[in-house]
Design a binder for these strands. Structure first.
Lengths: 214, 214
DNA sequence: ACATTCTTTTAATCTACATTAAACAGCGAT
DNA sequence: ATCGCTGTTTAATGTAGATTAAAAGAATGT
């Protein structure tokens, strides 16, 4: 059930630390929190569980995070923020003459790969987005809006260039695509299909879902 | 935020009661629980919150449900079970010569309409499916499997009759479609689009996503 | 009016965490 | 070998919230 490979390298931006030794512990706690948060939910995430997964004692967490809520806030934020970084840099790397649809398919791939690799962060974010106390929710909502905006532009462009079937509302089309790819974190298991296969199927699915029939 | 219109008429099957007066209170509690469960999650659902929404005192809940977990189990179950009933009866009502794709689109419509109408039950089920204690999870998983099986048959049929593009894996295609429609409960708001519009867009989206390009 | 069964309320319990306090261990520099 | 800092542990503390007990309050039939 533990699915966190990568390093949420973004996180420590706030602190001025570029250390290595204890910074690793911090990440270990963050990963553990993502895992437990995803499995038990906002209210169900016990610090003792996080501690167990991170292999230390609960109060040690307070050395790195001022409170349980701060820890949760960071988990909720990391997945999304990283996701947006990946997406924007992937789009930036695309050839300048890429069509809107090609860009959307890049988005599908980037989103899926990142989502499935750090799925604890993703499912934590998905399942708990609605359950957060207002204070925590703010930062998360802001980040989510930023991420959504990137996608919105892609769909606007596709609509403008006639790459979107005209019986589809661009906003609804975007939401339907987001569902297609977000939901993957809920069902995907390495044993059922490789990430490559999922990506290929999703791209084909989305492209045909959106494109006008010639 | 309160979105429960219909009557989870299925529920009292277990008890031998066909009453009216207090049965209404029971439903009120169930609806309230769905709402709170969807908003706060399994661990975050306080009986006092449920009580407040249902407009009674917390201990009164114990008159109708043996424990918090039993209440939750029933909420998790009702949405799914009703959904399957709707789906199977809608499919049964379809003309005998309906194509596999037509049946899938019936499924899309049925699922979306039911989901968006009783969305508290749906989002509760979606968000908490992974967070339940094993005991509760069982019944839910069983029901989920039954529901998934209905869909699986639809996709098998579509695959067999060549109505599914052959670069799509039937299993993955099913999951992608489920994502498209399940996710709607997370973003849909009556203010953004009517249910009819959502249904129409989703059907068009799914049909083109799946159908071979002639 | 009264007994009986349903329904709901207020007043105790009891336990599981988050958080805080206090103490301990490693370790580099002096 | 001792000081001071970083990181971690064990031992309190406090509170929220599920559950249970006991007591009212309706409703219904007689």
């Amino acid at each position: 059930m533990a699915k966190n490979s990568g390093s949420p390298t973004l996180a420590p931006a706030r602190e001025g630390k570029t250390d290595k030794k204890s910074a690793r512990t911090r990440v270990r706690i963050l990963d553990a929190a993502a895992q437990v948060l995803s499995a038990k939910g906002y209210a169900g995430m016990r610090l003792s569980d996080v501690a167990e997964v991170a292999e230390l004692q609960a109060p040690a967490i307070y050395y790195y995070f001022p409170s349980r809520d701060d820890l949760i806030e960071e988990v909720m934020w990391v997945g999304l923020a990283e996701m947006r970084e990946y997406l924007t840099s992937a789009l930036a790397a695309a050839p300048a003459d890429a069509t809107a649809m090609e860009r959307i398919l890049i988005g599908v791939e980037t989103h899926l790969r990142h989502e499935l690799e750090i799925s604890d962060y993703t499912t934590a974010a998905i399942r708990n987005a609605g359950q957060l106390p207002d204070q925590i929710r703010e930062r998360h909502d802001a980040e989510e809006k930023k991420y959504g905006a990137v996608w919105r532009d892609l769909f606007k462009a596709a609509h403008a260039s006639g790459e979107l079937r005209d019986d589809l509302d661009p906003y609804l089309a975007q939401m339907l695509v987001m569902g297609t790819i977000n939901w993957a974190a809920e069902w995907w298991q390495p044993s059922r299909a490789t990430i490559d296969r999922v990506v290929a199927n999703a791209q084909s699915f989305v492209e045909n879902a959106l494109s006008p029939t010639k």
